[in-house]
């Protein structure tokens, strides 16, 4: 069975929010209607988003690191939000493992949001239905698009290539390899939700530098040291 997912590399995310804005742009303009904003230019702006980038400070000064942390629906393999839905509006699609919501069946009872430990479901205050990331289901299934365009909007927008997209059940996929080779991990494993989305852990800057230098030396001896930021495949 296919299980589509994102793999997010915390080494290269710079917290620019390009994934947030491109997600909002694509999904507010899509077939499923707008992602409504309340009071967008007022004192207490609020809105419906599928994707948020948060920032954490890790460690004790002076040994601190700033970690930018994008968070969206993790498309769990055992999603706790799905069985609690009384109407069947929330479901896990068997063909590709996406956790989706049928907006026409949702009664807006909020129960699924209570049953998600990650807080990725948001009630649209205008349409009064629950919303969340669909991995741009209307892009990735659109056969009229060129193959390289059939990816979630956030993945296409990321300027540092921090977001990888693919089938984690295919051991040869880009995401499976990234998880395998970089120690990709899941959020809150204690609840056994088996999130499909994985995160690639931070490595220390010197480790990256050394590894990269070694690789470059192996491939192209006598070449110049790289000057650009390391980029994952």
């Amino acid at each position: 069975m296919t299980q589509l997912a994102l793999v997010i590399d915390l080494n290269v995310c710079v917290g620019c929010h390009a994934c947030v804005t491109s997600c909002k742009e694509w999904n507010t303009s899509g077939v499923a209607g707008s992602l409504s904003d309340e009071n967008p230019y007022g004192k207490d702006p609020s809105g419906t988003f599928f994707n948020r980038v948060q920032t954490f400070e890790v460690g004790e000064f002076p040994n601190t690191q700033t970690v930018h942390f994008p968070k969206s629906c993790l498309h769990c393999e055992d999603p706790p939000c799905v069985p609690v839905c009384p109407t069947g509006a929330s479901y896990k699609r068997q063909t590709d493992g996406l956790v989706l919501i049928d907006y026409d069946k949702c009664i807006g009872c909020n129960y699924c949001s209570w049953a998600c430990p990650y807080g990725v479901r948001e009630l649209d205050e205008n349409q009064k239905v629950m919303k969340k990331c669909t991995l741009c289901v209307d892009r990735i299934n659109d056969t009229s698009l060129a193959d390289e365009q059939r990816k979630p909007a956030c993945v296409l927008a990321c300027p540092t290539n921090a977001r990888l997209y693919g089938d984690i059940h295919d051991p040869e996929s880009i995401v499976s390899k990234a998880i395998r080779e970089n120690g990709g991990y899941q959020l809150m494993p204690e609840w056994e939700t088996k999130p499909a989305n994985h995160y690639l852990p931070r490595r220390s800057a010197s480790a990256i530098d050394n590894e990269l230098s070694r690789k470059v030396e192996q491939q192209r001896p006598n070449t110049l040291k790289p000057t650009g930021a390391p980029s994952k495949p």
Binding site: F49, T55, E57
Partner: peptide, 23 residues
């Protein structure tokens, strides 16, 4: 466990928006 980083000190600096949200 929430962000998967094993450091005893993790402090949130931004939650991705400055107003309120459903969350």
């Amino acid at each position: 466990s929430a962000i998967g980083i094993q450091n005893p000190r993790i402090v949130q600096k931004a939650q991705g928006f400055m107003g309120s949200s459903f969350n």
